[in-house]
Amino acid sequence: MKNPIRKAAVPALISLAMFTGVAWAQTAPVSASSTSAMSSSSTAAKSHAQRRMDNVEQQITTMHSQLSITDAQSKQWDAYAQTMRDNAQKTSDALSGRRQKMATMNADDIMKSYAELAQMHADQMQKLASAWSDLYAVLTPDQKQTADTLFHNRPLHPRPAMHKHTAKPASASSAASSSGT
């Protein structure tokens, strides 16, 4: 019984971990000198938001192709894809708004903001899971097998390249834990 639950929870937990890392990175304090740089970085933020949306579109296109979605399945597919787009846009907007307010937020505000982001993410995952269930119900057995393989073999949201350096090799982490550091 534990194994099916673990398999079902892993994609959601990986996604939550990814979101948590992004949200946590947003909590870096903003100095007075960097406040003036924020206006010049709005172009970079738009560029980042656009890259995020482009990534979502690429994921949608790739998954559509991998699953060989048919015209008869397009209604459910379109609902799932739109949910992905809506979630990405809402997340981008929320993170941008949080980033703009960060300089004036105290620790209590930051914690509440983080809780709001986590709740928003949980709500988004529920909507995405519901849209996925509707789509999965109309997939052929071969498409379901492909989907099962896709969800078992990789997370829904690939880990950003900028975080790859933070993972320790197994030997390094076991050596560190055995040395007490």
Rank of each mutant, 00 (worst) to 15 (best):
N3Q: 13
N3R: 02
I5R: 06
R6H: 02
P11D: 09
A12F: 15
I14R: 10
T20R: 08
V22Q: 03
A25D: 11
T27Y: 03
S34Y: 10
S39E: 11
S41R: 10
D54K: 00
D54T: 02
Q59W: 10
Q59E: 09
T61R: 11
M63Q: 09
M63W: 04
L67P: 14
D71H: 03
A72F: 08
Q73A: 06
Q76F: 05
D78Y: 01
A81G: 12
Q82T: 05
M84G: 11
R85D: 00
D86T: 15
N87P: 00
Q89I: 03
A94M: 09
G97P: 03
R99N: 04
Q100M: 06
K101M: 09
K101A: 14
K101L: 13
A103L: 01
M105P: 01
M105L: 14
N106Y: 01
N106C: 05
D109Q: 15
I110Q: 04
M111C: 07
S113G: 15
L117Q: 12
L117D: 07
A118I: 12
Q119S: 13
M120G: 15
A122C: 03
A122L: 13
D123A: 01
Q124K: 03
M125Y: 04
M125R: 02
K127L: 02
L128K: 00
A129T: 12
S133I: 02
L135D: 07
Y136T: 04
A137E: 14
A137W: 01
T140V: 06
T140H: 05
T146G: 11
A147G: 12
A147S: 15
D148V: 06
D148C: 03
T149D: 15
T149I: 15
L150S: 11
H152G: 07
N153Q: 14
R154D: 15
R154L: 08
R159F: 10
P160A: 13
A161P: 01
A161H: 09
M162P: 00
H163I: 11
H163L: 13
K164Q: 06
T166H: 10
A172E: 09
A175E: 10
A175M: 05
A176G: 14
